[in-house]
Amino acid sequence: MDNSGKKNNRRDFLFTATYAVGAVGLGATIWPFIDQMNPDSSVKALATTEVDISQIEPGKTVTVLWRGKPVFIKRRTQSEISEAQSVNLDELKHPEKDQDRVKKAEWLVMMGICTHLGCVPLSDKGEYNGWFCPCHGSHYDSSGRIRKGPAPTNMEVPKYAFIDDNTIKIG
């Protein structure tokens, strides 16, 4: 009785060990076939973009491509800055201080993509002196915050840094 119980346990152990090794092996085989669809090295190598901002006049916006998406870089005028900073946060659908959305008050850098369904909003349009999305009518203010329309959140601010006064590195 003891003996047969022991034998069963050994056999069970062998089965479990075999299935475990098989499962790990199968997983390790399948992973490369899934991972090959992730961004490859040549795509990752293009993951940062450097922009020269010395030629941008106050009040103007330039659009640059980063990871295949548009990024708005706006040099804001003093009136636009004070307008953005003076908004009462209670009025906002997605409350964020303007100071938290910029590194230097003069420069607004954000993804030029409407947070509703991904269209590119038009600059200097809409009821809030900022951006207006032509697809479904979202209005953004001079800080890129959603004020009116179907978009749920403010336009996203990407990771970026000032390398010097005239150059921004996005990503």
Partner: peptide, 13 residues
């Protein structure tokens, strides 16, 4: 060469 160098596990596949 792109498959061999850049694509994830491209060399293996």
């Amino acid at each position: 060469e792109h498959i061999m160098r850049d694509v994830n596990y491209g060399w293996l596949i």
